[in-house]
Amino acid sequence: MTAQVFDNRSCELGEGPLWHPERGQLFWFDINGKRLMTAGQEWVFNRHVSAAGWVGRNALLVATETDLIRLDLETGAQEVVAPLEAENPVTRSNDGRADPWGGFWIGTMGKRADPGAGAIWRYYRGELRRLYDRITISNAICFAPDGSYAHFADTAPGKVWRQRLSEKDGWPVGEPEIFLDHGPDGPNPDGAVLDAEGNFWCAEWGSSRVRCYAPDGSVLRDVTLPVSQPSCPAFGGPDLRDLYITTARESLTAADLQKEPLAGQVFVAANIAQGQREHEVIL
């Protein structure tokens, strides 16, 4: 299946698509443009922004390069919830998602993809705790339908892990296990989401596709795009069956952009699979 254009505004580095289930509305980010976007509207920040979770009908928890903030969607008011590597000018936030317990996982990375500069954190009930360090490009944070495990990736070595979670409170239990190992020269795992059956839908940077993997790691199907750099998928639409996909223009040459003029736009593949409802963040 080939995805079609959903929004034709170009992002330098599109990321973090989020379908707000109570508003029936898609939000996404242009990290390099320092903006949060939705149909017909944008919020511009003075620092990089990259991922969000929903907090009630009228607010988002937004991850920025220096903190987690609560953004009021009606007034635009911002309230700092927790600092995030605020003392480290090398890093910024990247991929993130709310978990089934109302927590929020957020990855960081070097602004120049500095090797090992990033980490993955979890905000839960007022505490921001580092879960993993020495991450180069944090990505693919998503959760099993029954909450039994999380996925996360480091794009640089081409690895995706699966982490068992505590049934009680969602903290990691034991060590993560390799789910996919493409190697540094294989498909580049970027953002990902799990559907209602536990299949892993992964945007593969540089491959012009979102690839669906079964829980055993076997390939099920591809959604292809007319651009080379898909960055993150999210399920949405009235029945959560449409797959929205952010993309990027970053690092493309003028010749590349002539070949793929739609780079950086948001795409959608309609009625592709049954997605999960995104979890609400509990502040």
Rank of each mutant, 00 (worst) to 15 (best):
Pro83Arg: 10
Glu85Gln: 07
Ala86Ser: 12
Ala86Lys: 03
Glu87Lys: 13
Pro89Gly: 12
Pro89His: 07
Val90Ile: 15
Thr91Gly: 02
Arg92Gly: 13
Arg92Trp: 04
Ser93Tyr: 03
Ser93Thr: 14
Ser93Glu: 06
Asn94Tyr: 11
Asn94Asp: 15
Asp95Lys: 12
Asp95Met: 12
Asp95Gly: 12
Gly96Asp: 11
Gly96Glu: 06
Gly96Lys: 08
Gly96Ile: 06
Arg97Pro: 10
Arg97Leu: 12
Arg97Gln: 15
Ala98Ser: 15
Ala98Val: 10
Asp99Arg: 08
Asp99Val: 09
Pro100Thr: 02
Pro100Val: 01
Trp101Arg: 08
Gly102Ser: 07
Gly102Trp: 00
Gly102Arg: 02
Gly103Gln: 02
Trp105His: 13
Ile106Ser: 10
Gly110Val: 11
Gly110Lys: 10
Gly110Cys: 12
Lys111Met: 13
Arg112Phe: 09
Ala113Glu: 15
Ala113Gln: 14
Ala113Ile: 13
Asp114Trp: 06
Pro115Ile: 08
Gly116Pro: 13
Gly116Arg: 10
Ala117Trp: 05
Ala119Trp: 12
Ala119Leu: 13
Ile120His: 08
Trp121Gly: 04
Trp121Glu: 01
Trp121Met: 04
Arg122Leu: 04
Arg122Val: 00
Arg122Lys: 07
Arg122Pro: 03
Tyr123His: 11
Tyr123Leu: 07
Tyr123Met: 02
Tyr123Phe: 14
Tyr124Cys: 10
Arg125Asn: 03
Arg125Tyr: 01
Arg125Asp: 01
Glu127Lys: 00
Leu128Met: 13
Arg129Gly: 01
Arg129Tyr: 00
Arg130Gln: 14
Arg130Pro: 01
Arg130Met: 13
Arg130Trp: 03
Tyr132Phe: 11
Tyr132Lys: 09
Asp133Lys: 07
Asp133Ile: 04
Asp133Gly: 15
Arg134Val: 03
Arg134Cys: 09
Arg134Asn: 14
Ile135His: 02
Ile135Ser: 04
Ile135Ala: 04
Ile135Thr: 05
Ile135Lys: 02
Thr136Phe: 14
Ile137Leu: 15
Ser138Asp: 10
Ser138Val: 07
Ser138Thr: 06
Asn139Asp: 09
Asn139Trp: 08
Ala140Gly: 06
Ala140Glu: 06
Ile141Cys: 09
Ile141Lys: 07
Cys142Trp: 11
Ala144Ile: 02
Ala144Asp: 09
Pro145Thr: 04
Asp146Glu: 10
Gly147Glu: 01
Ser148Met: 05
Ser148Pro: 01
Ser148Val: 02
Tyr149Gln: 03
Ala150Gly: 05
